[in-house]
Design a protein around this nucleic acid. Structure first.
Length: 485
RNA sequence: GGGCCGCUAGCUCAGUUGGUUAGAGCACCGGGCUUUUAACCCGGGUGUCCGGGGUUCGAAUCCCUGGCGGCCCA
């Protein structure tokens, strides 16, 4: 039957129904509550207790004068057992319909816990058929464009959505419990900064100027630290106008936390505890399988400096003192393109990025970054060529980025000027000078430990999702078009 | 941006070397069935083979081009 005929056949079934779109239905139980409450009911036994349930009819089996239906609600599934006088109404339902039913909770002869009803009630018609009851929907494009179908048909989609919700709730609990305050800062920025990325540009009509969608929340959260809000965090969408791959989405959700009087070593402990709690709360265990690795998030994460790691992976000793020519030669041996204006730090960063990072499997804290590639981190207490910065990496994917925050406004201005030079060389991801931010620092910012966590990525690790699109309910896709060539 | 792969019924898929009227299961429609659970039995057959152009006696199949998606690389 053609699609229009299927649609029409379903629509016709509304004709004889007086109130096909009721506004309300009183439920007494979710499916899972019935399974809990009546777990001990024996096969063939009636409970004597009434229940009202509602949800989507995902399967039905009519056998003569009785019928069986599987009702799916937010908690799970419960069988409807439709008897005598209800069979005509039941026969008039289609799979996918939203249905309510009231009756006695029983367990059938075959052992299936059921609500026995003689009046199944249509609560909302599904004019389109739901996904195939057995195969579900597996076309990735459909799963992303019509995530509701994925959620209806695929338990895995529901599991991931739920884990994300629970991860976020856990993190908020963790932070709130430590005296952090959740704040909201602007999404539209006059200057982009705080992250190394190309911004989206939009136009603000009321003040007739171009604005940038934020690439990070960092520079506003630090203003709040200046303002005396000692522990703040924001969970927010950030926008990066770049390519999409398994670990990058142009819209991503970032958690940033700032804690006055803490340093990056404090933040190392902090982020591990937060991730460990999130795992326990979201998936009930700290043992995870992600991509080709299995590990326990409760184990202490390995800590290695960037220079140690680069040395280890390349087999050549690289330190902050290694000279430019040696580094260029090393980069060349790894077939890396090095721009002529790059200093030693940028080359080390490039070797790390392209050669070393991908070798890391279990969570690893890579710390003490070159200053050149870290314009917002504080000078290292022992080595002025380095900064106090770390990233945690899992299976070659950066999970978080943290610093002892640079709070010296004079040094910060120099760093911005360094970024400006990169922009003049054509690096449009380098951040422009943000005078308003510098002015805030000039009023005095306490020493602060800051952290940025890619929440989508954290959910990937916890759920084992192998692409970021699986943990974003509505990932960005090109428009569907019917244009012909 | 580059390379490779894919797009066939509402869904999941098959479709040989280019050759009759493009198939299966599910879903759907009609009939049967008072304990089914991928229910079952009998009957029915749904289509812009992603769009456009070309080659050919003949195109889902080959070529060109565009779209969308996936994987890998930058």
């Amino acid at each position: 039957m053609a699609e229009e005929d299927l649609f029409e056949a379903r629509r016709r079934k509304l004709d004889g129904i007086s109130n096909a779109w009721p506004a309300r239905f009183v439920r007494t139980h979710l499916a899972a509550q019935i399974h809990d409450e009546f777990a001990n009911l024996q096969a063939g036994e009636d409970s004597g207790k009434q229940a009202s349930v509602a949800g989507r009819l995902v399967a039905s089996r009519v056998q003569g004068k009785v019928g069986f239906g599987d009702l799916q609600d937010s908690s799970g599934k419960i069988q409807l057992f439709v008897t005598s006088s209800g069979i005509e109404a039941f026969d008039n339902l289609d799979s996918g319909d939203i249905v309510g039913a009231s009756g006695e909770v029983i367990r059938t002869k075959r052992g299936e816990l059921s609500v026995r009803t003689d009046e199944p009630l249509l609560l909302a018609k599904a004019l389109r058929a739901p996904p195939d009851k057995w195969h579900g929907v597996s076309d990735t494009e459909v799963r992303y464009r019509q995530r509701y179908l994925d959620l209806i048909a695929n338990p895995e989609a529901r599991r991931i959505a739920r884990a994300r919700i629970d991860t976020l709730a856990s993190i908020r609990r963790f932070l709130d419990g430590r005296g952090f305050q959740e704040v909201e800062t602007p999404t539209l920025h006059p200057i982009f900064g705080g992250g190394y990325a190309q911004p989206f540009v939009t136009h603000y009509n009321a003040i007739d100027r171009d604005m940038f969608l934020r690439v990070a929340t960092e520079l506003y959260l630090k203003r709040l630290i200046v303002g005396g809000m000692d522990r703040v965090y924001e969970v927010g969408r950030v926008f990066r106008n770049e390519g999409v791959d398994w670990k990058h989405s142009p819209e991503a959700t970032m958690l940033e936390t700032y804690e006055a009087y803490a340093d990056y070593l404090d933040v190392m402990d902090f982020v591990q505890a937060m991730v460990r709690d999130a795992a326990t709360d979201a998936i009930g265990t700290t043992k995870v399988s992600f991509r080709d690795a299995d590990f326990d998030l409760a184990d202490d994460w390995r800590r290695v400096t960037m220079h140690e790691l680069v040395s280890e992976v390349t087999g050549e000793t690289v330190t902050a003192e290694t000279d430019l020519d040696t580094l260029k030669a090393l980069a060349g041996r790894h077939h890396l393109k090095v721009e002529p204006w790059w200093g030693p730090g940028m080359i080390v960063g490039e070797i790390y990025d392209k050669v070393a990072e991908g070798t890391l499997k279990a969570p690893t804290i890579v710390y003490d970054y070159p200053k050149e590639i870290s314009p917002l981190a504080k000078d290292h207490r022992d080595d002025p060529r380095l900064v106090e910065r770390f990233e945690a990496v899992v299976c070659g994917m950066e999970l978080c980025n943290a610093f002892s925050e640079l709070n010296d406004p004079i040094e910060q201005r120099k760093r911005f000027e360094g970024q400006q030079e990169l922009r003049e060389h054509g690096d449009m991801e380098a951040n422009p000078i943000d005078e308003a931010f510098l002015e805030a620092l000039e009023y005095g910012m306490p020493p602060t430990g800051g952290l940025g966590v890619g929440l989508d990525r954290l959910v990937m690790v916890l759920t084992g999702a192998n692409t970021i699109r699986e943990v974003i309910l509505f990932p960005a896709l090109r428009s569907e078009t019917t244009d012909s060539g």
